[in-house]
Design a binder for these strands. Structure first.
Lengths: 161, 161
DNA sequence: GCGGAAGTACTCGGATACCCACTGTCCGAGTAGGGAGGG
DNA sequence: CCCTCCCTACTCGGACAGTGGGTATCCGAGTACTTCCGC
């Protein structure tokens, strides 16, 4: 069990896009350059965000992506699920039905107890991601990161729009 | 992100082993037959449990596996980590260090804020798994499952030791 | 000088190869139980 | 009849192939800007 690299890249891209002036766009090329990741592959991850309506895309020169919503309205779960999918991490294949002691008549109404625990754990994970918004980490960064780095990054963004 | 099938198999095997009379063993062959899964591959998963000292193995006729501890002392996390490993689900490759605005002097002491959130979510997942013990699901099964199924399964186990 | 249309350059989006880890399988090392033989 | 030794059969453990999803890449469809031409 392992999250894709794309998740990390996408999260960082969203943070960067949050610093973008309104109605401006940042291209995949610039996003990839800023984070030092392969442009073409990052593009595929951003497609997921676009399909999930988390970002807006525009073509042509000066085109690219920008956030479709405010950072206060985009949770980590939104981004993670846009890339990883909404499928549960645990897949119950109901192997209890292979129990040789089961007769035709015995009915198992409730879902498998083991699967229930695993699904609860999955929900605990998602619940935490759902509780953290993009704006939260941005506020944190503005406190923790050196001021000059934030300023230089902001100007870098402005030079690339 | 997706858990291996082996996790499901292993959890069910542990539950079955909990019903085993003390000092008796159940072979991989029987465990595989009971759950309808490939014997050879299940063996590989049980090796993980053995290396994590969750089960004891014995060779020869009448050999196999039995729990090394009481069901009250084996958490879901123990089993999941024995199969999936203790590695975090989120791998931070520190792409923030590729930021072109970073100078040689700027120091980033704290870990990446994004990674911290993802690690917290991972910990929430593990925390839930850590709070549920094998004995819990067994108690639940003894309430929910039909009595005759439990009895037949118990006799099945006794016939295979 | 101004408006419009064509051309161009740049963007996203989907379709296409490559590679590692999960899945599945096999065989060898080692041991516990059973049986035969001797006392 | 009982004890000991040997043999057999069964077990786990690690080493060996096959396949699907993640990783990386490329090219085509579409658009906004720019430039040029005509009025």
């Amino acid at each position: 069990m392992h999250l894709k690299n794309q998740v990390e890249w996408t999260l960082h891209c969203c943070v960067l896009l949050a610093f973008l002036p309104p109605d401006k766009y940042l291209s995949t090329k610039d996003l990839a350059e800023f984070h030092g990741v392969p442009k073409e592959y990052l593009s595929k991850a951003l497609q997921g965000l676009s399909q999930a309506s988390l970002v807006l895309a525009t073509l042509g020169p000066q085109g690219g992506y920008r956030l479709a919503k405010l950072p206060e309205d985009i949770s980590f779960l939104d981004i993670v699920e846009a890339v990883e999918g909404k499928m549960s991490t645990f897949n119950c294949s109901d192997i209890r039905l292979n129990n040789p002691c089961l007769t035709r008549r015995t009915k198992l109404t409730k879902p498998c107890g083991i699967a229930r625990v695993m699904w609860e754990a999955d929900e605990a994970w998602r619940s935490h991601l759902r509780s953290v918004y993009l704006s939260d980490v941005i506020s944190g960064m503005q406190v923790e990161l050196p001021a000059d780095l934030l300023e230089k990054s902001a100007t870098w963004i402005n030079n690339h729009t």
